[in-house]
């Protein structure tokens, strides 16, 4: 007779642990939105290096490789990615979606993808437009 309640308690404890795991700690929605706000504030201020520091290093390297100029220059150069990004700067954050170590921040003018790295978020793709069933088409991505 003791077995069934004990098993039920153990199961409840296990499920509580699962629920806790599903909502695991770490940088949250506000942090992801803050990174995007700071990224676009840096772009709007012409501080490409500050914006570049918020990118995933792989994305920064790919941008520099594709544009032929340093990442910090490309992000504010109207002839490079900076042209598209400048048009999208200044918009307020509408929604943030978190899923594990990935996040999506939606503004009125852009959809930005981020990944958790250590205690913060880094931008993995920015200047993104939906393409239906296909992945977003992004101006800057790794």
């Amino acid at each position: 007779m003791d077995g069934a309640p004990r098993r039920a308690r153990q199961a409840a404890a296990a499920l509580a642990l699962v629920a806790a795991a599903a909502a695991c700690a770490g940088p949250g929605e506000g942090d992801a939105a803050d990174v995007v706000t700071r990224f676009y504030a840096a772009v709007a201020a012409g501080d490409g290096d500050a914006a570049c520091a918020l990118l995933l290093p792989g994305a920064a390297q790919d941008l520099a490789h594709e544009s032929g100029v340093p990442c910090g220059e490309a992000l504010v150069d109207p002839q490079e990615a900076g042209g598209v990004l400048a048009e999208r700067a200044g918009a307020a954050v509408d929604a943030v979606h978190l899923a594990g170590g990935q996040a999506q921040v939606v503004t009125a003018t852009d959809t930005v993808f981020l990944a958790r790295s250590g205690g913060t978020w880094v931008v993995t793709a920015v200047g993104c437009d939906p393409r239906g069933e296909r992945p977003y088409d992004c101006e800057v991505e790794s």
Binding site: A19, A99, G101, Q102, F113, P135
Partner: peptide, 18 residues
Amino acid sequence: VSGVVAYNEEQLRERHDP
């Protein structure tokens, strides 16, 4: 519950909506 988070994590990694 854990599956939808893991699935959406992959969705976002591949630049899809959750």
